[in-house]
Amino acid sequence: RSLKHLCRLKIRKCMGRLHLRCPVFMSFLPLPNRLKAYVLY
């Protein structure tokens, strides 16, 4: 697996499933929209 994929998995694990599904939580993250979309992919 690529480093990019492993990073996405780690971020998702740290955030938890409930936060990933909450659009309000995701909108408050201080991340560029492209990065938010990548994490959610």
Rank of each mutant, 00 (worst) to 15 (best):
V24T: 13
L29Q: 02
P30D: 14
K36P: 01
L35N: 01
N33M: 01
R12Q: 07
L35P: 00
C7L: 15
F25Q: 07
M15H: 01
H5W: 05
L9C: 12
P32S: 04
C7V: 14
L31S: 07
L20S: 08
C7T: 06
P23Q: 15
H19R: 10
H19G: 10
M15W: 12
L35V: 08
L20R: 04
P32C: 14
I11N: 01
V39I: 10
L18Q: 01
R1E: 09
L35K: 00
L31E: 00
R8Q: 09
M26S: 10
R17F: 15
R1L: 12
L31Y: 01
P32T: 04
M15L: 13
K4T: 10
L6Y: 11
L3V: 02
R8E: 08
G16C: 05
R34T: 06
L18S: 01
S27Y: 00
L35R: 00
F28V: 07
R1N: 12
C7P: 02
K4L: 13
P30F: 06
M26V: 08
S2V: 04
L31W: 06
R12I: 12
S27C: 02
C7W: 12
I11E: 00
N33V: 04
S27N: 10
F25T: 05
G16H: 10
K10S: 04
L3E: 07
P30S: 15
R21L: 13
I11V: 07
A37W: 02
C14L: 15
I11T: 01
S2D: 14
C7R: 00
L3G: 01
R17V: 13
L6P: 02
P30K: 15
C22M: 13
R34K: 07
L40R: 11
C14G: 08
S2Q: 10
V24D: 15
S27I: 00
P23W: 14
F25G: 09
C22E: 03
R12G: 05
R34G: 05
K13W: 07
Y38C: 02
Y41H: 12
K10W: 14
L18T: 02
Y38K: 03
N33D: 11
G16W: 09
H5A: 07
